[in-house]
Lab assay of single mutants.
Amino acid sequence: HNLTITQGKLFFHYNPKLCLSEIHKMEEVSGTKGRQERNDIALKTNGDQASCENELLKFSYIRTSFDKILLRWEPYWPPDFRDLLGFMLFYKEAPYQNVTEFDGQDACGSNSWTVVDIDPPLRSNDPKSQNHPGWLMRGLKPWTQYAIFVKTLVTFSDERRTYGAKSDIIYVQTDATNPSVPLDPISVSNSSSQIILKWKPPSDPNGNITHYLVFWERQAEDSELFELDYCLKGLKLPSRTWSPPFESEDSQKHNQSEYEDSAGECCSCPKTDSQILKELEESSFRKTFEDYLHNVVFVPRKTSSGTGAEDPRPSRKRRSLGDVGNVTVAVPTVAAFPNTSSTSVPTSPEEHRPFEKVVNKESLVISGLRHFTGYRIELQACNQDTPEERCSVAAYVSARTMPEAKADDIVGPVTHEIFENNVVHLMWQEPKEPNGLIVLYEVSYRRYGDEELHLCVSRKHFALERGCRLRGLSPGNYSVRIRATSLAGNGSWTEPTYFYVTDYLDVPSNIA
């Protein structure tokens, strides 16, 4: 807008934040220059609390790290170098490059900038070799853009010569660093050979998330399962459950009422301010606690030095998902009996873990797994792929695949051998790939016309006998059925096997 004052003059007093240069501009645009008398524009009460600059400061050096910015700028000295009290560095987070010096300023003089007072450097006698002032900004957020400017702080001049310097606002972004852990990993099994893994992005990506790394490792069953005799009275049979499938998407929606109208769909109840505040506090606490764990609990591995020492970490090797089922080394339970199943799973520490690289999504279907087997899954978020990966501390989750139908069934015939004193040795093959492992066998036998009897055969007993022995049988026709019990439950009964026990007292003698 054009402003013209045809008559009258300007009068400025007691404006401590208004620089004289701005008042002189007002004289020019209003056409009143030359009308004012000496005392109409006070030299001592206008701009006496402001830094009124008329020179431009330029930054000469900028260096960044993930949490620091090192700045240096060209030296500046007023005509009387004693008038320079120091520099004021202003900075704040700036997602967009549209910041002005006066953003967030209120009537009390406060604003949204963080201000650092910096002492002037030592003055050199040689004007050509003056030290460049600077400042190291610490405690910054990774991968965050900051708006920065600097200006001088000078003393009051009796001659009211307006001098000083100020830089333009520059924008500097800190470097990326390792992201925080992925949030809320959930693993479920939808079949006997697959596990579905879902997660949420890290709360602090500290860069642009480029991919996720998912490692999985087959877990050995508890050692007590191999040692305890679950045929003993009072000892509860062990059981394991597989990871249940995901709930429906509708039930997972946030901010939804727990109660549904019987007449149909209901609208979600909005969260109160107290609920939102509580969630923010919980989120802040979780982030602080995660940072504490990362800094205190997890110790970084030592990389190899120039002395030739090897990095103890196993090298990563990509495998196809079809090879995942046989990740671990199978060892027989008892070496003397080769027909026992290889369900003991000690994992070799030198073995390469299978892994998958996930790009542009937060889910993965891990296939080719062994049925009813526990897996430990390790999830890392990465925001750099080359020249070397920059990934987060791992988040861990466990899951067990679903049982395989008929995996616990005894394959092959049940054979028998009759000894003296009416002892019958029953023999059968253990299931080759049971659900988890076989903890015991149930032997059901009966003599024709009598009630059915049951015998429990422990895992250890089966390994020693290759089956079991029935003792003290009365003469007669017998039928026997056997079924295995694994961590997933009972298998199917075998087809009945028949044998006849004679009275050993009636056996004919070869003595003449």
Rank of each mutant, 00 (worst) to 15 (best):
D204Q: 03
P205V: 02
I209N: 05
T210N: 04
H211I: 06
Y212I: 09
V214W: 00
V214S: 03
F215E: 05
W216V: 12
W216F: 14
W216Q: 08
W216D: 00
E217K: 13
E217M: 01
R218E: 10
R218G: 14
R218L: 13
A220S: 12
A220I: 10
S223A: 12
E224N: 15
E224A: 10
E224Y: 15
L225P: 04
F226N: 13
E227H: 09
L228H: 01
C231V: 03
C231F: 03
L232V: 13
L232G: 13
L232I: 14
K233L: 14
K233I: 05
G234E: 15
K236Y: 14
K236V: 10
P238Y: 07
P238R: 06
P238H: 04
S239T: 13
S239D: 09
R240L: 10
T241K: 09
T241M: 07
W242K: 04
W242V: 13
S243E: 04
P244H: 12
P245K: 12
F246V: 07
F246M: 09
F246Y: 12
F246G: 10
F246N: 15
E247K: 13
E247D: 05
S248I: 12
E249S: 09
N255T: 12
S257H: 04
S257P: 13
S257I: 03
S257F: 14
E258P: 15
E258V: 07
Y259P: 07
Y259F: 05
E260C: 07
E260S: 06
S262K: 05
A263F: 04
E265P: 05
C266T: 08
C266P: 03
C266F: 09
C267W: 01
C267G: 03
C267T: 04
S268E: 10
C269N: 06
P270T: 06
K271H: 05
T272I: 07
D273F: 14
D273K: 06
D273S: 12
S274F: 01
Q275G: 10
L277Q: 06
L277T: 03
K278A: 13
K278H: 01
E279H: 12
E282H: 02
E282Q: 15
S283K: 00
S283F: 14
S284L: 09
F285Y: 12
R286E: 14
R286Y: 11
K287V: 14
K287N: 12
K287M: 09
K287I: 07
K287E: 14
T288H: 05
T288V: 13
F289V: 12
F289S: 07
F289I: 10
D291K: 04
D291I: 08
Y292F: 07
Y292L: 07
Y292A: 11
L293V: 07
L293P: 03
V296R: 05
V296C: 15
V296Y: 06
V297F: 12
V297A: 07
F298R: 13
F298P: 06
V299I: 08
P300A: 12
P300M: 15
K302S: 11
T303Y: 15
T303I: 06
S304F: 15
S304A: 04
S305Q: 11
G306Q: 14
G306L: 07
G308C: 14
E310L: 14
D311L: 13
D311K: 15
P312H: 11
P312S: 12
R313C: 14
P314K: 14
R316E: 10
K317P: 07
K317V: 07
R318Q: 03
R319L: 06
R319Q: 15
S320L: 12
S320P: 06
S320A: 15
S320M: 06
S320V: 10
L321V: 11
L321A: 12
G322K: 06
G322E: 10
D323P: 07
V324A: 12
N326T: 03
V327T: 08
V327E: 07
V327L: 11
V329H: 03
V329A: 03
A330V: 11
A330L: 02
V331S: 12
P332S: 14
P332E: 15
T333G: 12
V334M: 13
V334C: 05
A335P: 10
A336V: 08
F337R: 13
F337D: 08
P338C: 08
P338V: 09
S341T: 11
S341D: 04
S341L: 11
S342G: 05
S342N: 04
V345K: 07
V345C: 09
E350Q: 06
H352I: 04
P354N: 06
P354V: 06
F355R: 05
F355L: 09
F355S: 09
E356I: 13
E356N: 13
E356T: 14
K357A: 13
V358A: 10
V358M: 03
V359Q: 11
N360G: 06
N360S: 09
N360H: 11
N360Y: 07
K361F: 12
K361Q: 08
K361A: 08
E362P: 06
S363F: 04
S363C: 13
V365P: 10
V365Q: 12
V365S: 08
V365A: 15
I366P: 00
S367Y: 06
G368S: 08
R370K: 14
H371W: 08
H371R: 13
T373P: 00
G374M: 05
G374F: 13
R376M: 02
R376D: 15
I377L: 13
E378K: 09
L379T: 04
L379S: 01
Q380G: 06
Q380T: 14
C382P: 01
N383Y: 02
N383C: 11
N383M: 10
Q384F: 09
D385E: 12
T386A: 05
T386Y: 03
P387L: 09
P387R: 06
P387W: 12
E388F: 08
E388K: 08
R390M: 02
R390Q: 08
R390C: 12
C391H: 03
C391V: 08
S392V: 01
S392Q: 03
V393I: 14
A394K: 10
A394C: 10
A394L: 07
A395C: 10
A395K: 13
V397P: 09
A399Q: 11
E404Y: 09
K406S: 10
A407S: 11
A407W: 11
D408G: 02
D408A: 02
V411C: 11
G412I: 03
V414A: 04
T415A: 10
H416P: 10
H416I: 07
I418T: 12
F419Y: 14
E420N: 10
N421Q: 07
N422P: 02
N422T: 10
V423W: 05
V424Y: 05
V424G: 02
V424M: 05
H425W: 05
L426A: 00
M427S: 12
E430F: 09
K432S: 14
G436S: 03
G436T: 09
L437Q: 11
I438S: 03
Y441A: 01
E442K: 12
E442R: 06
V443W: 00
V443G: 01
V443F: 01
V443P: 01
V443A: 03
S444N: 15
S444A: 06
S444C: 15
S444D: 07
Y445A: 13
R447I: 07
R447K: 05
R447M: 03
Y448T: 15
E452D: 12
L453S: 06
L455W: 06
L455I: 09
L455N: 04
L455F: 11
C456I: 02
C456P: 05
V457G: 01
S458F: 01
S458E: 11
K460A: 10
K460P: 11
H461E: 05
F462M: 11
F462A: 06
E465N: 09
G467A: 04
G467S: 05
C468E: 01
L470M: 08
R471C: 11
R471G: 08
R471Y: 15
G472I: 08
G472S: 07
G472P: 08
S474Q: 11
S474P: 08
P475E: 05
P475G: 11
G476K: 00
G476N: 00
N477G: 12
R481C: 04
T485I: 11
L487F: 05
L487Q: 11
A488Q: 06
G489P: 02
N490L: 07
N490R: 14
G491H: 02
G491A: 05
S492V: 06
S492K: 01
T494W: 01
E495H: 15
E495P: 08
T497Q: 15
Y498L: 05
Y498S: 10
Y498V: 09
F499S: 00
F499I: 15
F499Y: 02
V507H: 01
S509Q: 07
S509V: 13
N510P: 12
N510S: 11
A512V: 05
